[in-house]
């Protein structure tokens, strides 16, 4: 029978974590959460057009992975990309402005929610095409290999996206060329209205790694410590030439597939249960306060600071001008 992917548990006691790191993990998760809540609010209020897919409930993954990367490293993101972009360190004001379709946005208002990119922090782009990112991440990894630098490229993708042919082609190419690429599956149990177990041939996407001769690991994606520790070890290995790895993070999509999704395909209880028992931010708070490494007051203070930053971002977006119609014709060629 086939060897199953290895499940990684967090081993480091939270008391042994560096304080600054704890603050950073919490700040990032809360930044993503509050960012997304504002986006949802303003979408429903009619201030944001287009399609918007929220990362709420999945914050632990982007946060835990990106805490092991620098701005020099690369990521490829998805249609559900705000969380990755925030975690990679993109400017919140310019991100928010992009989602609002403003000229001050990181893509000058040309892209919108599904097409955010911030190359200044190694964020090579969200993607409206499911499964569009894998092969680009492989290419970024190839560039690092050719140049001989030690950058790592990570590509984030959903359980649904793991059924695209590009997944398989990218894994094979990355493996056969031993490229510095981390494949991060965010298995949130749904692909739009399709439950993962009705569309995927295996329960654990990480099991697919063995078909390409690379390591596959599974972590609890709603435990930021589990993600952080697994990603740390894996990214160190990739950085030192160990080759590509597939990391599957088990999580759950708390919000509808897109803002406005009537969600007739699942019960409210299923969602509520997940929200109440398995929220990555609540779990972090419980863990650090129980261990006595952070206090409620400290957490609240961080929360307040983040709230202010997000409010600034919204204000910046609202007050920014829309692009001039003539800008449609700019940037087609260099």
């Amino acid at each position: 029978m086939c060897a199953k992917a290895i499940r990684k548990e967090p081993l480091v006691p939270v008391t042994a974590y560096d304080r600054d790191l704890l603050v950073e993990l919490y700040r990032k998760m809360v930044s993503i959460r509050l960012f997304e809540q504002k986006v949802e609010h303003h979408f429903l209020a009619g201030d944001i057009p287009g399609f918007v897919h929220l990362y709420i409930g999945e914050e632990g993954i982007a946060t835990g992975v990106m805490a092991n990367m620098t701005k020099e490293d690369y990521i490829e993101s998805t249609h559900r990309g705000h969380g990755h972009t925030v975690a990679k360190g993109a400017d919140l004001n310019r991100m928010m402005a992009e989602i609002f379709g403003k000229r001050t946005g990181c893509c000058k208002g040309k892209g919108g929610s599904m097409h955010i990119a911030d190359f200044s922090v190694g964020m090579l782009g969200a993607n409206g095409i499911v499964g569009g990112g894998y092969t680009l991440a492989v290419g970024a990894g190839l560039a690092s290999k050719l140049r001989g630098d030690d950058r790592v490229s990570a590509v984030f993708f959903g359980d649904g996206a793991s059924n695209r042919g590009t997944f398989h082609e990218a894994l094979n190419m990355a493996a056969v060329w031993n490229l510095p690429v981390l494949f991060v599956c965010e298995n949130n149990q749904w692909a739009s209205t399709t439950p993962t177990n009705t569309a995927n041939s295996v329960e654990d996407v990480a099991d697919r790694a063995q078909g390409y001769g690379i390591p596959g690991y599974i972590v609890d994606g709603n435990d930021v410590f589990a993600v952080y520790e697994a990603a740390k070890e894996i990214i160190q290995s990739i950085r030192s030439g160990g080759g590509p790895v597939l990391l599957e993070c088990k999580t759950y999509r708390i919000k509808g597939h897109f803002v406005g999704d009537p969600e007739k395909y699942r019960t409210k209880e299923e969602v509520q249960n997940m929200q109440q028992t398995n929220d990555p931010i609540t779990r972090f708070e419980a863990k650090v306060t129980e261990a006595g490494v952070m206090t409620d007051q400290e957490l609240e203070e961080i929360h307040r600071q983040v709230e202010a930053a997000i409010e600034d971002a919204v204000r910046f977006a609202l007050e920014s001008p829309e692009p001039d119609p003539s800008e449609l014709y700019e940037d087609l060629y260099v």
């Binding site: 057009p49 379709g101 403003k102 040309k110 892209g111 097409h115 119609p325 087609l332």
Partner: peptide
């Protein structure tokens, strides 16, 4: 026009 479709309303 000979451009991709842009997101922002005026575009």
């Amino acid at each position: 026009p000979f451009t991709p479709v842009a997101f922002a309303r005026p575009l």
